[in-house]
């Protein structure tokens, strides 16, 4: 039987992935005030990557994104722990977060919180792990 082609899927995927990426980033940043956050954002990101894997193949994706996702995960956790360790410097209990409001030129009044950094770590860990797992399994024959 002739190999089915994936033209339709791939063209839609391109659009969809962009939407998902954007949405994930949105979820990630709105997490502090709205539903979402590092974990969901990260998993959404991973979902987008999965979609790419689904519609293309492993090698194609890997050529474009050549990251060791294990390390991404590890670095993510390290960042999260790092925000906690930061409190040592200020003689505060481990994992004390702080936040304040700043007037930034473009964004206007913006809240900057160390918790966001923590969330970055969460997201990275999630992405890293999810992609590692998916890729390792699919590489196994």
């Amino acid at each position: 039987m002739k190999e089915p082609n994936d033209v339709i899927l791939r063209s839609v995927t391109k659009v969809a992935v962009v939407i998902i990426f954007t949405f994930s980033i949105n979820l990630f940043f709105s997490g502090h005030h709205l539903p979402g956050g590092g974990f969901i954002g990260g998993l959404g990101f991973a979902a987008a990557l999965t979609l790419l894997f689904l519609s293309y193949d492993i090698e194609t994706v890997r050529e474009n994104i050549s990251l060791d996702f294990k390390k991404v995960a590890v670095v993510g956790v390290l960042i999260a722990v790092g925000t906690g360790l930061g409190s040592f410097l200020f003689d505060a209990p481990f994992l004390s977060h702080t936040f304040d409001y700043f007037d930034l030129p473009i964004f206007g009044k913006t809240e900057l919180a160390t918790a966001v950094l923590f969330d970055v770590g969460v997201a990275m860990a999630v992405i890293g792990t999810a992609v590692t797992v998916i890729m390792t399994i699919s590489e196994d024959r």
Binding site: I8, L9, V12, V15, A16, I19
Partner: peptide
Amino acid sequence: IFFVFLTAPV
């Protein structure tokens, strides 16, 4: 809405 529109047929 857009997304459902886009993906449902696929």
